[in-house]
Design a protein around this nucleic acid. Structure first.
Lengths: 146, 146
DNA sequence: GGATTCAGGACTAGAAAAGTCGTATATTTG
DNA sequence: CAAATATACGACTTTTCTAGTCCTGAATCC
């Protein structure tokens, strides 16, 4: 929500306090998330009395996957379904479902990569792209509003 | 792994002890999961000295989504992205990303529904179906082996 | 210099998950 | 029938993760 809000402010410097008040969550909690996003260079911070945060990455190419990984770390179905995690698992050698799980993991990642900050912040401008992607799910959705 | 194994035994009654030994996990832990699957009628249990478990549902139509929901409960990105969960959330009224999150949730569910027990237990027999689905991810995978 | 803001480590509390234990019940076999 | 083997399931413990807080410090603006 914070990233979506910063993106929607389009160039304005937004303080963590403002975001915390808007969404009624604690200032410290928002700050922690924003600091993680800053470390990944998704947003830039400006210190001082009129400081705050501003978008650094283009919302059209910043995906939900990247935000989740920055804030919560890389989440996996099981520890071995990542890059070179074959030996990392305690079931190594006995597991018979590593390949199918890795395939599912790749598809899940693709889903999280398919939604961008721009689509969340400016839904009206992205209807065409949205319809194309939704063909996978089997259902055709034509509206996109909050 | 347990369901995949029972499915691969194709009609034979398989005991929890056998599964626990095969995968080197505790008997009680396997039992707990199998009991959850029994309650959902995915497998049937047979008590007594030669007892065990047997498939009840067709592996070709039993999805990973159903197994995960049975064993670990319905997992969601956030509590409100389910059926009629609109008011369930503490952010109700302030949240601005409910719709996009619900869309992502639906796509994630679709991924978990796209992999069946049969595809995990008998990979060689399901190559065609597998290729069709993977078109969504953008990558074309032609092999499927454990 | 004082007010405001970010930076970030340390800490706490609570929930969830993993895993265990004990007891009851059903079934087969000798 | 009795012993052996299996499931059924609630209760319990332990561990791990996450949400959220607290505090100190540094940068910037007025």
């Amino acid at each position: 929500m914070a990233v979506q809000y910063i993106a929607s402010c389009d160039g304005r410097v937004v303080s963590a306090k403002e975001i915390a008040e808007k969404y009624a969550i604690s200032f410290e909690f928002v700050s922690k998330a924003l600091q993680a996003l800053m470390r990944r260079k998704f947003i830039a911070s400006q210190q001082g009395a009129t400081g705050g945060y501003i978008m650094l990455r283009d919302p059209k190419t910043l995906s939900v996957a990247e935000i989740l990984e920055a804030v919560e770390g890389k989440q996996r179905l099981v520890e071995c379904c990542g890059e070179g995690g074959a030996g990392a698992c305690s079931m190594h050698g006995r597991c018979s479902i590593r390949t199918p799980l890795a395939i599912i993991q790749r598809r899940l990642d693709a889903v999280l990569q398919s939604m961008t900050v721009a689509q969340m912040a400016f839904p009206d401008e992205n209807i065409e792209q949205y319809v194309v992607i939704s063909q996978f799910t089997g259902s055709f959705e034509t509206s996109f509003s909050n």
